[in-house]
Simulated assay, not measured.
Amino acid sequence: MDEYQEIIMEIITNSGVAKSKAMEAIRLAQNGQAEQAESCLQEGKDELVKAHKAQTRLIQSEASGTAYEITLLMIHAQDHLMSAITIRDLAEHVVELYNRLNRQ
Rank of each mutant, 00 (worst) to 15 (best):
H80M: 10
H80Y: 10
I85R: 15
C40I: 00
K50D: 00
S39E: 15
K53L: 09
Q78R: 11
I70A: 13
E38W: 07
M74T: 07
A77V: 00
Q55K: 08
A67Q: 14
V49C: 04
L72A: 07
L72V: 05
S61Y: 02
R57K: 14
S39A: 10
M74F: 08
S61C: 02
A51S: 06
S64A: 14
I59E: 07
Y68I: 03
I59Q: 08
A54W: 01
S64V: 03
E62S: 13
L48K: 03
A37G: 05
S61Q: 12
Q60I: 05
T56I: 04
I75F: 09
E47S: 11
L41S: 07
G65Y: 08
L81F: 12
A67G: 05
Q60A: 09
A54I: 06
E62M: 11
E69L: 11
Q60M: 11
E38Y: 11
L58T: 03
A51R: 05
G65A: 04
I75L: 13
L72E: 10
L41N: 13
L72D: 11
A67E: 12
A77F: 01
L73C: 07
E47Y: 03
G44R: 06
E69W: 00
S64M: 13
A37Q: 09
E69T: 14
Q55F: 02
A77W: 03
C40R: 13
D46Y: 03
E43A: 07
L72R: 10
K53A: 12
Q42N: 13
A54P: 02
L72K: 10
H76K: 11
K53T: 09
G65R: 08
G44F: 01
S64E: 13
M82G: 04
Q36L: 10
A84K: 10
M74W: 01
L73V: 14
M82K: 14
A37H: 06
T56G: 02
E47R: 11
I75G: 04
H76C: 04
K45T: 09
H52C: 02
H80P: 09
T66R: 13
H80A: 04
L72I: 07
L58K: 08
D46C: 03
H76I: 02
T86G: 13
I70H: 08
M74K: 14
S83I: 03
A84F: 06
A84D: 08
H76V: 00
E47A: 06
D79W: 00
Q78V: 01
L81S: 00
I59D: 08
L41R: 10
A51E: 01
A84P: 06
A54H: 01
I85Y: 15
S83M: 10
Q55L: 05
L73H: 14
K45Y: 04
A51I: 00
V49R: 15
S64D: 12
M82A: 05
T66N: 11
L41W: 01
